[in-house]
Amino acid sequence: MTLSLLALLISGCTQSESSVVREVPIQQAWQLEPGQQVGEHRIAGGLGDISIEMRGDRIYAPFDGELQPNNVPNCYVFSSPEVPAYIFRLCGLERPRLGAVAQGSAMGSADFLGFATLRRQPDGHWTMVEPASDVLQRLLDPDAMQVGGGEE
């Protein structure tokens, strides 16, 4: 009885919306995509993903935003109201902190991080674009947002 009450309280108190899987319809349809299985092995990254050797280091929120699970297994979607028209897919994230995340706070860690930048299309699809180093730097260094803004 105590246990069921505890379970009820936990499920009621934490991460209700944040654990909802965010499906991202991607415009480019490739034969081989992350999440697919080839023989006994799963594809971890595909065309459009930048793979970064993280060696277990932390990954930080580049802006105030939200981290949600993605329909691709082992991948997560970061989005921010401060950056309209774009979302970021992070694959390989371990111990992810789902839900609202503040800029510069840790979102998890990774051995290898697969990073993709997706831009919203007028038809509601998302298209993979070439990521810029600005956002990637913010993901890897919580103090990177000071660059450019704090020079005067």
Binding site: E82, P84, R119, E130, A132, S133, D134, V135
Partner: peptide, 15 residues
């Protein structure tokens, strides 16, 4: 305006 940044390579995003 918010800080100008590049979200995709080579294109400045104005917010």
């Amino acid at each position: 305006s918010l800080q100008s940044l590049q979200v995709r390579a080579g294109i400045a995003a104005e917010r």
